[in-house]
Write a protein that binds this DNA or RNA. Structure first.
Lengths: 161, 161
DNA sequence: TATTGTTATACTCTATAACTATA
DNA sequence: TATAGTTATAGAGTATAACAATA
């Protein structure tokens, strides 16, 4: 017999992915699938999804911003913002306030209920991330966060020299 | 005046996301959006997508594996594997070979064309990742890759104590 | 004319469930 | 009965394009 395993009758777990695991992108995709699933499960009891959670955070930090600005901050289109804001408004977590002198846009602001919910959710998410990253030192966690932040900013380094 | 800016008439770029950026998960999502867009653009000239690229890699590394095994390695359902394998077979990059003694499953194997394409694509993707991570030291790149690998394995640390 | 919010639509990715042909 | 592959379908998430109201 050769050293090559007969993959077709081997157990599922014996399949290797050494080549793919050399790429940062592949590891990032697999990591994000796990992290986002955990995050979704954490938010679900609060009636939030990843994007409504994110939108709520931006609105709290930037009171009276417009929907277009919210979309810019979240990196999504205006049409997508409508859905998020609808959902948050429906849950009475943020309000579409009219702004004097400009009837085209809204001034988005978190409600008292939205502020209260945020405090609870934020604490819960922090706890959850701490568990998720329990294997890492504090330095490693901060290093990971910072490197991802660098990769997640506006530029994509696509082709510009 | 106070330190609070009037967000509603500020330029779009002035919206802050300091709170969200504290979370690893948010940075990972934003990073993955950028990285995957870059990756897709890199693969497109080769007629590959992220998942067909990944599937090709797994098949090359595990000749004669089954579709179910491929799905296990990629973390997707069997029904999704069919689409990927259809696409790779259509492009003559892998073949669904019959296996003696079991007419239920296929033995997947890369074609000569698939092997040749892989060499070119792999080199191109490596180059691309190097550019994407150009701001990081070699140690940082490896550290990032390893931490993501740790987060992207089977366990999700959801609720088990 | 340009901008803000909105709606309708479509596309990508993936899971679920039901089916077939084998075992 | 159980398994491998397949098919149909549905859902989530998001983008594109066209539109109305307003600037």
């Amino acid at each position: 017999m050769s050293a090559r395993k007969a993959a077709s009758d081997a157990a599922p777990g014996t399949i290797s992915d050494t080549v793919l695991r050399q790429f940062v992108g592949y590891n990032m995709k697999r990591a994000y699938i796990n992290v986002s699933a955990d995050m979704s499960a954490t938010l679900e009891p609060f009636g939030l999804k990843i994007m409504t959670f994110s939108a709520l955070a931006i609105v709290l930090e930037n009171p009276d911003l417009t929907q277009t600005q919210l979309g810019g901050a979240l990196g999504i289109e205006r049409s997508g913002v409508v859905v998020l804001v609808d959902e948050l408004e429906e849950a009475d977590l943020i309000a579409r306030n009219r702004v004097a002198g400009n009837r085209r846009s809204y001034a988005l602001r978190a409600t008292v209920k939205g502020q209260a919910l945020w405090k609870k959710v934020e604490a819960r998410v922090r706890l959850h991330e701490a568990r998720l990253l329990a294997n890492l030192t504090d330095d490693d966690k901060e290093s990971l966060r910072a490197m991802l932040h660098g990769l997640g900013s506006t530029e994509g380094s696509s082709d510009e020299k």
